[in-house]
Simulated scan of single mutants.
Amino acid sequence: MSGTSVDGIDVAVGEFAGAADGRLTLRPLGARTFDWSPQVRRELLELLPPAATTVEQVCRLDVLTGREIADAVASAIHEFAGGSADLVVSHGQTVFHWVEDGRAQGGLQLGQPAAIVERTGLPVVSDVRSRDIAAGGQGAPLAGTLDVLLLQAMSPVIPRALLNLGGIANVTVTGGDGPLAFDTGPANCLIDAAIATATRSEQSYDAGGRLAATGSVDQPLLDRLLAEPYYRLTPPKSTGRELFSRDYVPSDTGLSLPDLIATLTELTAVTVADTLRPHGVREVYASGGGVHNPALMRRLRHHLGAAALLTSDRLGLPVDAKEGYLMALLGYLTWHGIPGVLSGGDGVLTGAGRPRVLGRISPGDAPLRLPEPGVRPLGLRVVR
């Protein structure tokens, strides 16, 4: 998977079992982030809203991203699985998430799966969001499936949340009226965009949170940004760079770069904490690139108050690999005919009418033989 930060191709290799009785296990074999080539990453960022583009550019990038994902997958299979695997699931790179009046209408991920099949000879599950959207769901965040199954396997049952800090922040909350999963708003995307603009792309993120740590929060700008109507929508909800684009922050702030970054960092911390506070969560397990930003983590701890801020490493999933293992899980469920979204407090976590089996399967070199359908998963344990 490559997330909304477009900061690399996250590949995770895992061994799954338990589809027959619903007691799923995951044995992580290894994970690594592979860099996009500078050219492809630059073109992907240039393609994102509000930029204009052409069908030619979309076609080219679909093929080029597919080839680079294929190379990354093949390398990971060689490194972590002795050169042998059963199935690949590829999320690709989201370049547009179409939402109107609070409802997702569609989305586009680039990364031609045929290139992965050709490189590996394996069947590939791709396009994992579209079926959920067609069924009336948000198509995001799909992390709720992995998160809920992980939390269901934990004891005792207390209100907990899993938080992913990618370009966009998403949370899964358990306890109370049932699990919820939704996007809270920006995590790193506005910070990254402001730094790239100010440095003419010489820098792409706030390394070590140093800029935020040396700046001061501008309260008028923060209040202006917190007035965004998205924060007041009720779950299920999803968002992306279509809303929180590089042009989202006013260009006339008059702030120094450190003060601007400090303010955008505070925006992420406040909106995440405000989202979680009503649910009374006592533990928050964070993952994603934002975990490596000490300034952001400090502000999150401050605003979360009594809730403990931990990382997904405590659950057996490294912070930089959790979404890769999420994709592996979704592929495993699809292969066994099991819906890739779960029921929540008031229905399906994503808002779909019914849980659906996700994605489409591209056959590999061998004849395509699917196993007998599995059953509804009851939980997921990470084993060694």
Rank of each mutant, 00 (worst) to 15 (best):
Y248L: 03
D247K: 05
D223V: 06
G215K: 13
P258D: 04
D252H: 03
L233F: 00
A227F: 05
L225S: 11
D206Y: 06
L222A: 11
L211V: 09
S216D: 11
S216H: 15
L221Y: 10
P229C: 10
F244W: 04
A207F: 13
L255E: 02
P258H: 04
D206S: 06
L243G: 01
A213Y: 13
T234L: 13
R241Q: 04
K237E: 00
R224K: 15
Y231E: 05
R210N: 14
Y230R: 08
G208Y: 10
Q219I: 13
T234R: 14
P258F: 03
Q219A: 14
R210T: 15
R246S: 11
A212F: 10
G240I: 04
S251W: 05
V217T: 15
D218M: 12
Y230F: 15
F244D: 01
A212S: 12
R210P: 07
G208E: 14
D247A: 11
S238M: 02
L211W: 11
P229S: 11
E242S: 05
Y231W: 13
Y231A: 05
P236F: 00
G209F: 09
T214N: 14
L226R: 13
K237H: 01
R232V: 07
E228V: 05
A227G: 12
Y230P: 02
Y248F: 13
S251G: 13
P250K: 07
P229Y: 07
Y205G: 03
S251Q: 12
T253R: 03
S204G: 08
G209S: 12
D223F: 07
S238L: 01
R210W: 14
L243P: 00
S256F: 01
L233N: 00
R241L: 08
P229T: 11
Y205C: 05
P220H: 10
G209P: 05
S216K: 15
E242C: 03
K237A: 02
G208P: 04
R224F: 12
Y231M: 08
S204C: 09
R232L: 09
P250R: 06
L221I: 12
Y205Q: 09
L243K: 06
G208I: 11
R246T: 06
D218Y: 10
L221S: 10
G240W: 04
P220E: 08
R232S: 13
G254H: 04
P250D: 04
P250W: 07
R241A: 02
S204T: 14
T234A: 14
Y231C: 06
L233A: 04
A213D: 14
L257N: 01
G208R: 07
F244Y: 07
G209Y: 06
R241W: 02
G215R: 11
V217E: 12
G254A: 05
L225K: 09
S256H: 02
L225Y: 10
Y230S: 08
A227P: 04
S238H: 00
D206C: 05
G240M: 03
D206N: 08
P258W: 03
P236C: 00
Q203T: 05
G254C: 04
S245W: 03
T214K: 15
D206M: 06
L233C: 03
R224A: 15
S245F: 03
R232G: 06
L233W: 00
G215D: 10
P250C: 07
A212L: 12
L222K: 08
T234I: 02
